[in-house]
Every structure is written in C-alpha cells, then in structure tokens.
Amino acid sequence: MNHYPHHIGDFNTATRHLTRLERGLFRDMLDMYFDKEQPLEGADISLLARRLLCHTPEEVAALQFLLGEFFERLDDGRYQNLDCERVIALYRAQQDVQQQVKSNENERQVRSRARRSAIFAALQSLGVHPEGMTKMADLLALCRQHGVTVTETGAHVTPKEGAAGGSAGSGADGVTPAVTARHGDVTGNQNQNQNQNQIPPNPPAGGDGVGLAIASALGVFFPVQRRQRIAEVAELVGDLIQCGTVTGEELLAAAEQQKDKHAEHDGKYCPGMLRWLREKRWLDSAGQPQAEASKGSWRESVAGADQVGRDLGLLGYQEGVDNCAGWRTLGDYVRVIEREMAKREQGVN
C-alpha cells in the first residue's frame, strides 16, 4: 500500500494517553504494517526494534508497551492489529474490483472497435465514407439514412423490398451478406479508429448483466464523483431498456455527446448517473435544435424546460437546484414554469 487513511480525531482519541515518543513510534509501526500489508514480525523483538530505529532502553520499552496495548500476538510470533487488517482487506477488495472493471472495459473497447469497423465497412460498401473520428451517434444516423441495420455484433445493408435479381456485390438471392464484427487483433478500419480518445463501450446482447454492463459503460462519460449508487443505476437501465423507453446504444451515444458538458467546472453541475436517467437527460442532445424547446415536448427534457424557463425570466434548471430555488427534480421545474405561464396569461387577460 502506498497510502492509508489516517483519521486525526480517531487517532488522537486512541492515543491521548501515550507520550510523544510512543505516539511517534506508533505511527512508524502503522507505516510498517501497511507497507508490508501483514502483521509485524515480532518473533525477534530486538530485530523488530532495530527495524523501527528503537535503540535506547526507553525506546525499546515504548515498543513493548505499544505491542501489548494495540496488537495481538499470533501463534507464529507476529503482532496483528484488527483495525489495520480491516483497512488492508478493504484495499485488496477495491483493487480486485478495479482490476475487473479495467478488464471489462478493455473487452468492451475491443468489441466496440470491431463493431465500428463493421459499420464503416457496411457504409463504404454503399459509397459512404465517414471520417475515422466520426462519433457513434453520427454513425448510427448515417446507418438509418442509408438503410444499414446495426446489431449488437455487427452491421449489414438492409435489402430493399421488391428488389429484382441480384446486384453488384450481392449473393445469388440479392441480399448483401452481413458484415460481422471480428474479435481479431486487426480489423478492416481499426487503424482509422484507434486514435479516438474514448469509444462508447458496446453493450452485450441479452443476459441478466446487461443493465450492469451498460451502467458501468456510462460511467466513462461522467465525473468520478457522479458515479454513485451503481446498483440502482444498473437496475433502472435494465427497466428502461426492457420497457422500450430507450436502448443501450442510445444511452451510450447520448452520454458520449454530453461528456464535455459533464466535465465542466470539475463536474460541479453534472447530475448523478441515477438522476440523469430518472430525468431522461439522454434527450438533452448536444445537436438538438433549439427550436425543439418551443414545442410541446419541452417538458420531456431538461434542455427544453431550461430554455422555456429562462425565456420566462426564471433561473436555469441546474442553477435553481444548486441555489435551492424551489425545485429539485425536472417535474418540479416544469410545474414552476407552468405556474409562471398561467400567471402571465391571467395578467394578459
């Protein structure tokens, strides 16, 4: 361990009865414990004293007192501290989780690159040549525009209904074969994609872990302090996808599009992931025309409500939340706007 938590109040309370020599020596003992991540080797007290720079009789006596006061002697002669053991166990568990998250992230990026390569190949077969840095949301828009069907494992050109006979590059049945993603080291367009800063991880197809996988992937586009309550986020993602409200791909594409906004002011005004989902913030597309807010759909997104509210002279949604202006959710903000609209209509009439 390179560092460990030191709670000043707890330490002062536990060591208030110690001399200054004993307090300083106790900190050295804790440093050694956490550095080795194991109980102190005390079978040979003189050797332990030497390692802790205890040379005078007073220092050795302080060491022996501290071993009896804060440590338990094990059968093998080592001295164990239960508080230290709890901290080390938590640290190791967190390390395991981080390793697993990193491994999953690497796998998702491999799948995503392969899937992007399949999309590029399908579009290029139709004479469409997007730039290598094109975002996933824009690629999906091109696919819809040109009749390319995108699946969880690849992409293929959707055959037109009533097409007679085969066409160039088609099979005997007139259907263009599906271009599927491969998991090999090199894919057709991997070189033009490998320099992207962040590629939206590809959600797996089906399974009970879909919500958790997509929730973990969404976290890439949120500040660290906003990646809270991941279990609830995963459950809500699963419910939204299952009921058809939104797809995993749409969530990831929207989050990627909003990542720069989320990072502004060190994430101070970025909503938590759970709130982002509950308030349907994925609808706040960066490329959404401002005119959309004036339509009846303004109630469905923060961007739309924010514009209408500002037009009425109200604080913006997030600004109002931060300053306790009377709303905490999008629904509250919408009701405030509607009341303000009603007041103005009555004044006009």
Results as ranks from 00 to 15, higher is better:
204 P>S: 03
56 T>H: 13
231 A>R: 13
325 A>V: 09
127 G>V: 02
31 D>H: 13
9 G>F: 13
276 W>V: 10
257 Q>D: 15
330 L>C: 10
138 D>L: 11
49 A>N: 09
208 D>Q: 11
91 Y>C: 00
345 E>D: 13
336 V>I: 11
115 R>Y: 10
161 E>A: 09
181 A>Q: 03
345 E>I: 01
267 G>I: 06
335 R>G: 06
214 I>P: 00
344 R>Y: 10
121 A>F: 02
223 P>D: 08
79 Y>R: 05
255 A>P: 04
253 A>D: 15
309 G>L: 07
179 V>K: 12
256 E>F: 05
50 R>C: 03
52 L>F: 07
168 A>P: 02
334 V>F: 07
20 R>C: 09
214 I>N: 01
349 N>S: 11
259 K>Q: 15
251 L>S: 06
144 R>H: 12
183 H>Q: 10
89 A>E: 08
146 H>M: 02
225 Q>V: 05
22 E>W: 07
154 G>Y: 00
160 K>S: 06
220 V>R: 10
6 H>F: 15
169 G>S: 05
258 Q>N: 13
315 L>Y: 10
275 R>V: 13
48 L>I: 07
315 L>I: 00
9 G>T: 12
213 A>M: 03
138 D>Q: 15
267 G>S: 09
224 V>R: 10
9 G>Y: 11
63 L>Y: 03
216 S>D: 08
32 M>V: 03
254 A>N: 05
151 T>Q: 12
191 N>G: 01
132 G>P: 00
269 Y>C: 08
